[in-house]
Every structure is written in C-alpha cells, then in structure tokens.
C-alpha cells in the first residue's frame, strides 16, 4: 500500500505496510465531518451571502447572514479542535438561532417559503445529529468510565517513607548569617 509518509523516511526507518484500527471513534469522525461542514457553510455565508438570501427570499439581510457565517466558522474551528463537544454544543445553539431566523421568514408573502421550510427540516436534522454526537462524545470521554481505584498503598518506597526521607540529601555547608 502506498503511503506518502514513506517517502520521507530514511533507509533504516520502518515504513507503513498496512494500517490497523484507529484511536478515533465513530463519534470523533462524525464530529470532524460536522466541523468541516460548519467551515464550508460559514465560508459560503461569509463570502456569498446573496446566494443564501436569494434562495430563501431573505433579500436585504446579507449582513445577518455574514454574521452567521462568522459564527459557523468559529463553531467549526472549535468542533475540529480537541474540545469538539464544546464546538458541537455551540453548533446546537447556532442551529437554534438559525431556526428562529428561518421561522421569521416563513410568511405567506415569501415566494420561497417552501425552500425555507425545507431548510428548517434540514437544520432540525443537523441539530439532532450535533446533539447526539455531543452526547456520544460526552459518554466516551467521561472520566468516570471504568473501575475506580485509589492507590493508597503505592508509596514507591520498598523500605517505607520514613526510611526514604532524606536518604539522597547531600551534606551541605553551614550557612553563615549575614552581618552588617
């Protein structure tokens, strides 16, 4: 199997022949996907807000869409970081804002009301995905998982602490008291 990384190894270094199971869980991978989705959506909203407002019949609200784009980018960066659960929860909060904004556009006078409704269904689905992923991550990274043990008998000193205390201390010269 070809691996780019093998190209930079020296002659004696091991090179990958085949890859094994990863430490990444399915929730980690889903979070990563949602993070990149946030980055893509945020970039679109920031750079081409007219496309969004035209599609949803929201002309004149480009400034708001740009602000939402910025929010998506922040949430995306957070979701791609080690603190992905915080990123996902910020996405859930952002999804809520999106829903409120979309709901305000769901009026009979909006010729794109059907698209707005479809967008609301999509945002609802993604919100559920964000939330479920955040909950999965919380469970997977919970420090309470596994056995609880206290290591009260692990002093590391085979002869006991009293015998160990100061055994490596160096003899020091007596300090002279400063005089004026």
């Amino acid at each position: 199997m070809f691996h780019f990384s093998n190209l930079v190894r020296s002659k004696g270094d091991p090179k990958i022949i085949s890859t094994g199971p990863s430490s990444l869980t399915s929730a980690d991978r889903l979070a990563r996907g949602l993070g990149w989705f946030s980055i893509a959506l945020g970039t679109l909203e920031l750079l081409a807000p007219h496309r969004v407002t035209n599609a949803l019949g929201m002309e004149g609200r480009e400034g708001l869409v740009r602000a939402y784009g910025l929010r998506e980018l922040f949430a995306g960066v957070m979701t791609l970081s080690v603190e992905k659960r915080a990123g996902l929860m910020s996405r859930v909060a952002g999804d809520g804002l999106d829903m409120v904004t979309l709901a305000s556009e769901l009026r009979p006078s909006n010729p794109r009301a059907g698209t707005v409704l479809a967008a609301m269904v999509m945002v609802g689905g993604i919100t559920a995905l964000d939330y479920m992923c955040a909950q999965d991550l919380k469970a997977q990274h919970d420090p309470r998982r596994g056995r609880k043990r206290l290591y009260t008998d692990r002093s590391g000193f085979p002869k006991g602490i009293t015998a160990a205390k100061g055994v490596a201390a160096l003899p020091r010269p007596t300090r002279s008291t400063a005089t004026t």
Binding site: K11, G12, P14, I17, T19, S22, S23, V82
Partner: peptide, 28 residues
C-alpha cells in the same frame, strides 16, 4: 512488525510496518 503510528490529531493506529534496519555503524 507492529507499531503504534501517528496518523493525525487523536488518530493513533496499530499498524504493520517494515522492520528497522541498521543504517549507520553506531546503530543497534
């Protein structure tokens, strides 16, 4: 041989890799 290999953030895998070889005279 088997080795734990870094593939990216939070992505460590137990891969099959080639065995290391002596490259310089001072290697072991």
């Amino acid at each position: 041989m088997k080795a734990l290999v870094w593939h990216g953030k939070e992505d460590i895998r137990c891969d099959t890799v080639s065995d290391p070889e002596i490259e310089h005279a001072r290697d072991a």
